[in-house]
């Protein structure tokens, strides 16, 4: 690619970054939402929106790790569910303290990631199929743990979640912590390796990058973020439900793609995915507050998302040599 040197090179770089699409969509969504819902910027409204968004943002961050490394993780929704039912049933039926239950719930989620990573990177079976089969298995386990929705977590936990700390919405702090957690990984060897492996596995291996290990780690990362999301979601809804995570696998993927990360791997960013996830939450809001008749809401939000995806795809294709997919 030809490069023109100029003083606003940084601006060009930011503008050309694939994450831009996700953030532009987010800003458009924010403006549209503010128009239909004038109370959007009240602290309590921000708080409840972020409370809803935090779990999806976390899952999307984890999904980005898996996708960047050239894989995909369909089991994230099941991991969210597993953490939720485990924490809730430990708290309410086995009298475990919340924090112990939380640690066990997250550990169980990470264990799923370890199994995923092992089968995908060492047994070498396509990630799509492995995580799909794991989804079925883990959903079954969750259903065995908690056959019906119910149970409750201690009241002070979900009160903290819906509250503000030092004037800032608590969920916002959680999102910031999540992003920081990612930044820690991104700028260490593992982050660079993820992108290298996703971009060109063969060359990475030739250059001494432990490809198998990196692939393995990407699924552990993805599962870790998903189980943290399960924890946040548990704090948000305060009870357990064996089907609670069903929508997260696919929504997280949509967030990743809307954020300009290529499903083919090797190119993209977590910040874009965060923008994409927030956009998806805003779409639900907009459709609700724009007084779209209830039967039309699914259709309208679906259409907005598909148009967002098509825009992302077209912009990506026109931006030069990069593509969202190997599909052509």
């Amino acid at each position: 690619m030809r490069t023109r040197f100029s003083s606003n090179q940084t601006a060009t770089r930011i503008f050309r970054s694939p994450a831009m699409i996700g953030w532009v969509l987010f800003l458009l969504g924010l403006v549209a939402n503010a128009i239909v819902q004038p109370t959007l910027f009240k602290l309590s409204v921000i708080n409840s929106n972020l409370g809803l968004a935090a779990p999806l943002v976390m899952v999307a961050i984890g999904q980005t790790a898996a996708v960047l490394a050239g894989g995909i993780d369909l089991s994230v929704g099941a991991i969210v569910t597993l953490t939720n039912v485990l924490v809730v049933s430990l708290c309410s039926f086995h009298h475990t303290g919340f924090w112990l239950a939380a640690i066990l719930g997250v550990a169980a989620g990470i264990a799923v990631g370890v199994v995923n990573g092992f089968i995908i990177s060492i047994v070498r079976i396509p990630a799509l199929l492995v995580t799909f089969a794991m989804m079925s298995i883990i959903n079954g386990v969750a259903l065995a743990i908690l056959p019906q929705p119910g149970g409750q977590i201690p009241a002070d936990i979900y009160q903290i979640y819906g509250n503000t700390v030092a004037g800032l919405p608590f969920p916002l702090l959680l999102i910031i912590v999540g992003v920081l957690l990612w930044v820690v990984f991104r700028y260490r060897k593992i982050g660079r390796y993820l992108i290298a492996v996703g971009g060109a596995a063969g060359s990475s291996r030739a250059n001494g990058i432990p490809v198998t290990k990196v692939r393995f780690q990407s699924y552990v990362l993805s599962a870790m973020f998903a189980s943290l999301a399960g924890l946040f979601l548990t704090a948000e809804v305060s009870s357990g439900d064996p089907l609670i995570g069903a929508s997260y696998a696919l929504n997280s993927l949509a967030a990743v793609v809307l954020g300009g990360t290529a499903l083919a791997g090797g190119r993209g960013s977590v910040s874009g995915s965060v923008g994409g996830a927030l956009f998806l939450i805003l779409v639900q809001n907009i459709v609700y507050f724009a007084n779209v008749p209830s039967y039309y809401q699914t259709l309208v939000s679906g259409l907005i998302v598909v148009m967002g995806l098509a825009t992302t795809g077209v912009l990506y294709a026109r931006s030069g040599k990069w593509r969202l997919t190997n599909g052509r």
Binding site: I72, L250, L253, A254, V257, L263, A264, G302, V305, V306, L309, A310, T311, T312, G313, V314, Y316, A317, R323, L324, T325, G327, R328
Partner: peptide
């Protein structure tokens, strides 16, 4: 539009 098939058909 070059949307990845997985995501396109999911959105649809």
């Amino acid at each position: 539009a070059q949307v990845p098939p997985l995501i396109m058909t999911l959105g649809m």
